[in-house]
Every structure is written in structure tokens, then in C-alpha cells.
Amino acid sequence: MIINNLKLIREKKKISQSELAALLEVSRQTINGIEKNKYNASLQLALKIAYYLNTPLEDIFQWQ
């Protein structure tokens, strides 16, 4: 199981879903879906999320 901390980290950094989506060149709905565990981010997208949030990938998506 993967624990998804994207919403928590994004909100801590005061970045909206729309802002993050624009940086990543995806839709806001994609970010929303990832945060609600409706969609799994591809490895490429997960790495981009970590880069733009300046946060280690394993802090955003944790295996349990």
C-alpha cells in the first residue's frame, strides 16, 4: 500500500492544485485524482512532483 502525502505537503508549501498542475503541465483534475488516490502517478510525474515541491519522493509517496 502507498501512503500519499501530496496534499499535506502541497498545502504546507502554500501551493494550490492549479499552480502545481500548471508547473507539471497536467490538469488540476489530475492532481486532485492523485491526492484522492483515484489515480496513480506515473514514475515520471511522481519525480516531477518531488522536484517542483523540493521534497524527496519517498516523503510524498511512502510504501507501507
Rank of each mutant, 00 (worst) to 15 (best):
M1C: 15
K13R: 11
I3K: 13
N37Q: 08
E11H: 07
I60C: 03
T55V: 10
I34W: 04
A50V: 04
I2Q: 08
I9P: 01
L57Q: 02
I49L: 07
E19N: 10
L24G: 01
I15T: 04
L57C: 08
N40C: 15
L6I: 06
S27E: 07
I31H: 01
K38E: 15
K38N: 09
Q17M: 07
N32L: 08
I2H: 07
F61E: 01
L53S: 04
K12P: 00
A21H: 00
L53T: 01
M1H: 10
L20G: 00
E19L: 05
L45S: 01
I2M: 11
P56E: 07
I34A: 00
Y51G: 06
K48R: 11
L45W: 03
S42A: 04
L8C: 15
A41W: 04
E11K: 12
L53R: 01
L20V: 02
D59S: 09
L20C: 05
K12G: 12
N4H: 04
A41N: 01
I3G: 10
Q64C: 12
S27T: 10
S42V: 04
V26F: 01
F61K: 02
L53V: 03
L6C: 07
N32W: 09
N40M: 13
L53C: 03
I9D: 02
E25A: 12
K48V: 03
Y39D: 06
T30C: 15
F61C: 06
I2R: 09
I9F: 09
K14D: 09
Y39R: 12
Q62V: 14
Q29W: 12
K13C: 12
K12I: 09
L47T: 13
E19S: 10
L6P: 02
I31G: 00
I49C: 07
N32S: 14
T55E: 10
S27Q: 05
I9Y: 10
I31S: 00
A46R: 10
L24M: 07
L53N: 01
K38Y: 12
N5P: 01
L24D: 00
S16I: 04
Q29T: 12
L6G: 03
T55D: 03
T55C: 09
K14W: 05
I60H: 01
L47S: 10
Q44G: 13
L43M: 12
I9L: 08
N40P: 14
L43R: 13
K12D: 08
N32H: 11
I60W: 01
L8V: 14
L53I: 05
